[in-house]
């Protein structure tokens, strides 16, 4: 990863100096051990802040859409002749590029509004898994070397192998190399284990409906409706989300458990064919709600029913934005057969 990082900084400097991009969305080291936070680089000399490692968690496509739409909006207030264009560069691994593809499919911006610096990805560290390994103690120091992570807590020092602490979505990632890029840095990362990506969903499907409901109820009971999952999701860019609409008010803001369940059902359902399994929502959730078990189901169905892999190709459209005449309709109720 070291030379990817070095190369990334060099390229970023060049792109900014040549004014090919106005801003680069990347990651910088966080203030706590084991963290990297999104950063916005606007001058070549700042490019040395950039990092690329297994602590880079958030999907940066979120900020690309944000920056471009805010810029476009600000240009509305400027005389037509004084309007400027803004090209946003982004450090993008596989899932980030898929989110960008989705945003492009949904016409959020034009292809030349963005400059994609593709990076290979070997997965990111799930902090909850690390916490479990050190019995929840505070981590004072952490460093990566190859496929090992060394952590120090107040009492002990431990070296963990990355395989055991990567996030679930990373372990079964199908697209850990970018599907879209203007510039690739580093050589392609080796494949993860996508064959087992639906193992969790398949196991869940086998439970009885009552057990599935109990699980859903239990998970959603943890949710405090902080909306962090939505805020971080690159596919959740709606100016006014249904959750805040007041005419009509789709979902109540009370503490009622069904309001939370309905909020979740609809937020999740809005991800049909639009969730790239980047895990950002799971990572930011302060309550540890298991969103992935449900998101993966939607992904599996979109693939089974429509052959869709979210954001995998610019030529395709999201599955619910299109249809085929011979789409499956075995779910359609037939009163003759039902007898």
């Amino acid at each position: 990863m070291e030379n990817v990082e070095k190369k990334l900084r060099e390229e970023a400097k060049l792109l900014l100096a040549e004014k090919k991009i106005d801003v680069l969305v990347g990651y910088e080291a966080g203030t706590l051990p084991m963290t990297a936070t999104p950063c916005f680089i606007t001058a070549p000399e700042e490019a040395d802040r950039l990092v690329w490692n297994a602590f880079c968690v958030q999907n940066l496509a979120k900020f690309v859409q944000d920056l471009i739409s805010l810029h476009r909006e600000s240009q509305q207030r400027v005389k037509p002749e004084a309007r400027t264009r803004k090209v946003v560069g982004v450090v993008a691994r596989g899932c980030t590029t898929r989110s960008l593809v989705i945003q492009l499919q949904e016409r959020q911006f034009n292809r030349d509004d963005i400059f994609v610096i593709g990076v290979p990805c070997g997965g990111y560290v799930d902090k909850r898994k690390v916490a479990a390994q050190v019995a929840g103690q505070e981590i004072r120091e952490a460093s990566l070397a190859g496929d090992r992570l060394s952590v120090k807590t107040a009492g002990e020092a431990k070296t963990l192998s990355l395989g055991g602490i990567l996030a679930d979505n990373c372990l079964t990632c199908r697209f850990n190399n970018p599907v879209l890029s203007d510039l690739m840095i580093g050589s392609p990362a080796s494949a993860m284990a996508p064959e087992s990506e639906y193992a969790g969903v398949e196991a869940h499907e086998k439970l009885s409906p009552a057990d599935r409901w109990d699980y859903f109820e239990k998970e959603m009971a943890k949710c405090i409706r902080c909306n962090a999952c939505r805020q971080t999701c690159p596919s959740c860019y709606c100016r006014v989300c249904f959750a805040e609409q007041s005419q009509p008010q789709w979902v109540g803001v009370s503490e009622d458990e069904t309001d939370t369940q309905v909020f979740q059902i609809m937020r999740l359902y809005h991800m049909v064919g639009r969730c790239v399994d980047c895990g950002s929502c799971v990572a930011v959730c302060p309550m540890g709600v298991d969103l992935r078990t449900f998101l993966k189901k939607l992904d599996k169905d979109a693939f089974e029913l429509f052959g869709n892999r979210a954001g995998s190709s610019l030529e395709d459209l999201p599955p619910l934005s299109q249809f085929k005449e011979d789409d499956r309709e075995d779910f359609i109720y037939d009163p003759q057969k039902a007898k």
Binding site: E217, L320, I332
Partner: peptide
């Protein structure tokens, strides 16, 4: 049809009985 195919599956996945939502 696409929306309801996915919705019906999703609702029954979370545990709402399949026959509560019907499409025809």
């Amino acid at each position: 049809r696409r929306k309801f195919a996915t919705l019906k599956r999703f609702l029954s996945y979370i545990g709402v009985e399949g026959d509560r939502t019907m499409f025809t």
